[in-house]
Structures are given as C-alpha cells and as structure tokens.
Nucleic acid binder design. Structure first.
Length: 295
DNA sequence: TTGCAGGGGTCAA
DNA sequence: TTGACCCCTGCA
C-alpha cells in the first residue's frame, strides 16, 4: 500500500518500507538521543516504544521493522521515526559552511526520534554528570523492576514505567537501580507529574521559552536537560542543547576560543534558527565520534 | 592489586 | 561562582 509517500507492505511478522532516505540505524540510535535501543550483531537495533518491542534494520533505501503490523507502523513507528519529515531539505538548509557540511556527511542518516516525553524526562535527569552505558543500565533496571514485561524472540523486554509506578517505588527501590544522587530528583519529578503540578501534555502548545521554564520546575532539570527533553520528544526543534561536547565543538569550529553557554545559545539561535536542534544533533554526533576538542 | 580522577549537569551556599 | 554529588570505568 501507499502510506504518506512510502510504499509499505506487511509480511509475516514485519513491515517493509521502501524508498526511505536519510536513514541509518547506527546514526539514529547512537547519536545520543535515546538509551533504550540495543545494537545487534547485524547492526540492527532492538528496542521498546509505547509497550511494543521492535527490531529495526535498513539497507539501500529499505527499512524493515520486525515484530510490527501495518497498524503498528501507522500508529507508532511512522511518527516515532519521524518519517514524515524531509531530512534532505533540512540538510540543504543547514548547508551553511564547511563544518556543517562535514558533520552532516558524517551523520547523514540521523533522524530525531519522537520519544515519549516522560521517558525522555527521566532519562535525561539520569544523564546529568553520567555516562551513556550507566544511563542505559539505570533506565533498563527501572524498566525491568516497574515496567510491563514483553516477550520477543525468546527474550524479555520491559516497557518504561509511568510516573505512578516510579513514585510508588520509593527512594530505596529507585536507588537499587544505580541512579545515585539523581534518584531523589526522579522521585520528586514523578510525584509532580502524578499530581499534575506540571502537565507534560501542555508543553507542546507553549512557546519554547515557556516550555523550557515549565520543565525546569522539576528537580534535576536545568537548561541543558530541558532542551534535550524538548528536542528528543519531538516537541520543539528550535533548541540547542549545549553540553560539554557541543561546547567543545562550537568553540573549536566556530568561536576559535572559549565561549560561554549564553554566547553559544545566542549564536545557534541566530545562525541555525528554527533548525538549531537538527544542527545540534549533527554537530554533537560528529564531535563525539571524532573526539573533537579533546586534543 | 589498589587508588584516584572524572564523566552528555544541577543544586545549594 | 564553586564544590559536592552516586557509581563505574580507565589508567597509573
């Protein structure tokens, strides 16, 4: 069948999508935006989204989503993988200088996933002063303890637990997931969401500055985490999450000197405009994989 | 083998 | 503006 410009067919346990451009699972799942996708020996990725497990692989324009029906594709995967967006056009618009050109050539298959806002919020609270393997372990442990079990291919997977579940878990249980000093932030954030003190579903309707302010009401959420949450949940694209890697790459490539957080934010906003979030992803992936700025 | 620095930030003083 | 923070890994 034709679905929004793609040729899609269902076959046994999978959906096959033809003519998918600007897509590389390694770039997408290892560019730092998500912590729940596990790379398989064949470079496909298996992960859990909205209570469904899937395995995603890609070759020569063909995207294969295993353990998915046509309905799942329409209800979940099309949006989650941001397939409605023309990344070729974005790359053309961001092709402003040699640095961006190189970064986009390097991470040509990056797409920004539209992840569950709550899951991204907790994941990035955990990310503060932490490393990716540790973040993945903690998120996996919380899911295993408080999420719902899903069987796939002889393995058990777990959905990400809701605010009620994490709040009821209590501080000691959360600390068993190795989140360290961030656990008290998670517990209080869960409480605030559960009680409706901050309504996550209302963020999309706010302007970016207001949405960022709202998110920063949560403990453990500063400007960097707030921007990550907005960007990786697909809520806002005109943000430029600035962590140590982004700071390094911007100083090395654009400023040629040390620059403050505010200087970098202002530059990104005026130079990349509404596409700042996409620029950040290309630059971050390029910088981290090539260890730019670490001499 | 043991010890120590430091990591995709945020909070509190 | 600056140090502390959980926990783990890498590297003397």
């Amino acid at each position: 069948m034709d679905y929004k410009g793609y040729k899609v067919k269902e076959e046994k346990d999978r959906v096959i999508v033809e003519n998918v451009q600007d897509f590389d699972p390694v770039h997408i799942f290892e560019c730092g935006q998500c912590f729940r996708w596990v790379r398989q020996p064949d470079n496909s990725f298996t992960g859990v989204v909205r209570g469904k497990v899937a395995n995603i692989s890609y070759q020569n324009g063909t995207l294969v989503i295993k353990n998915s029906s046509l309905k799942d594709f329409q209800d979940i995967w099309f949006e989650y993988l941001d397939l409605g967006r023309d990344y070729g056009k974005i790359k053309a618009l961001l092709d402003k200088d040699e640095h961006m050109k190189k970064a986009m050539e390097y991470g040509y298959g990056i797409r920004i996933l539209k992840q569950d806002l709550w899951e991204v919020l907790i994941s990035f609270i955990i990310s503060a002063n932490n490393r990716i393997p540790m973040i993945m372990k903690t998120v996996a442990a919380m899911s295993k303890l408080y999420g719902d079990e899903i069987q796939y291919d002889g393995m058990a997977y777990y959905s990400f637990p809701g605010a009620d579940k994490l709040f009821e878990a209590g501080i000691e249980e959360l600390e068993a997931c190795r989140g360290g000093f961030r656990c008290k932030y998670i517990l209080n954030t869960a409480r605030m969401v559960k009680n409706g003190e901050v309504r996550l579903e209302e963020l999309e309707g706010m302007d970016t500055g207001k949405a960022r302010e709202e998110l920063m009401k949560f403990p453990g959420v500063g400007p960097k985490v707030a921007d990550c949450v907005l960007l990786y949940s697909g809520t806002k694209q005109d943000v430029f999450p600035t962590d140590v890697w982004v700071k390094r790459v911007m100083e090395e490539l654009y400023f040629k000197r040390e620059a403050s957080f505010k200087e970098i934010q202002d530059f990104a906003s005026s130079y990349f405009g509404d596409l700042a979030g996409f620029a950040q992803q290309y630059l971050f992936y390029y910088a981290r994989e090539n260890r730019i700025g670490t001499k």
